[in-house]
């Protein structure tokens, strides 16, 4: 079914405000076109015949909120998705990170964890895993449980293995997991440096300084104002000369931050400029 106009813009707006006030989860600045599709989809899946029914359920049944968040946020991910992005991390970013005594990486919107395990594999192969901390956060607590377990469907391993090889992987991908029935359980040595926590990019603040922040295919669901706010959060959380990695169709181009960041390759990876360069730049423009 394609967006039957079950939902009117004003009604949706009102519901999102109610949810923010009742539960503290603020979706009011999510991109309109997309969230309307998501809300419509949940009406179809959970067989609500009207928007009022969904609203009633959400307001009267706090336990339903978790379900709503799971369906509203898109949790589609894979290991080494966009292999060329991971190749650029391996070849251009990790060697630079190696100069720091401790490396702190923030993966914002980590979903079920496929990306953080990909990063850990690169850190291991570049001999940096011992001094790296991976902070993996998501708005949704139930995906974090899965991420912590590091157990992914065995059926995906063929694709992930191809992605891994295309990203410059050096080993046998199957060395990193143990196959058990239909699942692949990733090795504990990859997990040792991972810290999982809920973090809401809309409402929570910076919690550390990082040399690398990766946030892929999360910002596409936010409107421009919210994007600007999150870019500011990333800027506040990134050391000078730190790196910011975005999804393949996300960009700093339409953001205020653009002039303080330098895109390091054709991949969506930017490097924060040194303070003095930023001053020079801002004097010029």
């Amino acid at each position: 079914m394609i967006e039957p106009d079950l939902i009117r813009d004003e009604e949706l707006e009102k519901l999102l405000i109610e949810i923010a006030e009742l539960y503290g989860y603020d979706f009011t600045q999510y991109s309109k076109a997309s969230i309307k599709r998501r809300v419509n989809r949940i009406c179809v899946i959970d067989k609500f015949t009207s928007f009022a029914e969904l609203r009633y359920q959400l307001i009267k049944q706090p336990s339903y909120l978790q379900r709503f968040i799971e369906e509203i946020t898109v949790n589609v991910t894979e290991m080494f998705r966009d292999p060329s992005f991971y190749k650029a991390l391996r070849d251009d970013v990790f060697p630079q990170l190696g100069t720091y005594p401790i490396i702190r990486i923030w993966l914002a919107g980590c979903s079920t964890g496929e990306e953080v395990y990909s990063l850990a594999i690169i850190a291991k192969e570049t001999n940096l895993i011992q001094k790296t901390l991976f902070y993996a956060t998501d708005i949704n607590p139930s995906v974090l449980e899965k991420a912590r377990d590091g157990i992914f469907p065995l059926s995906q391993m063929k694709l992930y293995s191809e992605n891994y090889i295309n990203s410059g992987g050096l080993k046998n991908f199957s060395d990193y997991y143990t196959a058990n029935y239909d699942f692949a359980r990733f090795n504990d040595d990859l997990k040792q440096k991972m810290i999982f926590s809920t973090h809401n990019l809309v409402s929570d603040r910076s919690f550390n300084e990082f040399q690398l922040i990766i946030c892929r295919n999360v910002l596409i669901y936010f409107d421009k104002d919210l994007q600007a706010k999150v870019f500011k959060l990333f800027d506040d959380s990134l050391e000078h000369l730190g790196f910011l990695g975005l999804g393949s169709k996300e960009t700093l181009r339409f953001s205020q931050l653009d002039k303080h960041y330098h895109q390091i390759s054709t991949e969506k990876i930017w490097r924060k400029q040194k303070e003095d360069k930023r001053l020079i730049k801002s004097n010029h423009f």
Partner: peptide
Amino acid sequence: APPDYHLLLEQDKTISLDFSEKF
């Protein structure tokens, strides 16, 4: 439209990309 994304339009005539389920 870029591969692997749905392409949506917003009221202000900007493009929103969306990586939700295939349709």
